[in-house]
């Protein structure tokens, strides 16, 4: 099937198999390997991206369902948010770095994308709201404590900005 997808600001026109998962499309057709695959039951959230600004788990969508959509991955987050090509770091990326909210880093792209969506809906979350809001994203390294801190910190920074 023919699809047109905008991935991190670049338009792609591709013929894809109807069964192709969005995450495999992003990784293997659009070359956006920043989005990893962590499971096959949509539990871990490592593959979370923004689809038209809303977080989705790209392993549980077909590429053809993204036809006509704008997809933002971890590799396009800063540029999309800052409106510049090089982008620097998004406040969430900076906060994850400063608060040591990652260790192996495998869950990090999905965690940051899910957090971006969370802060869009709720710019002033409590700790409990952050914990509940990230329930669909698993991390095996950090025990989540610093992830929660980082999201709260990024929320504060975005308010100040």
């Amino acid at each position: 099937m023919r699809i047109t997808v905008n991935v991190d600001g670049v338009r792609y026109d591709d013929d894809v198999e109807p069964r192709l998962l969005l995450v495999h499309y992003l990784r293997e057709h659009a070359g956006r390997t920043g989005t990893p695959v962590g499971c096959d039951t949509s539990n871990c959230g490592a593959c979370t991206v923004l689809l038209n600004g809303t977080s989705v788990k790209s392993c549980s969508m077909l590429a053809v369902q993204a036809d006509g959509a704008e997809v933002t991955t971890i590799q396009g987050l800063a540029a999309t948010a800052n409106g510049t090509a090089d982008g620097g770091l998004h406040p969430l990326q900076r906060a994850f770095h400063e608060e040591h909210a990652l260790q192996c880093g495998y869950c990090t792209p999905g965690m940051i994308m899910a957090a971006a969506d969370l802060l869009k809906d709720n710019p002033h979350p409590t700790e409990e709201e952050v914990r509940d809001g990230l329930e669909g994203n698993l991390c095996r390294c950090t025990g989540y404590q610093n992830i929660v801190k980082a999201v709260l910190k990024a929320a504060n920074q975005e308010v100040k900005a």
Partner: peptide, 8 residues
Amino acid sequence: LITGQTNW
């Protein structure tokens, strides 16, 4: 790791 440039 935070920018998706990781070499898995």
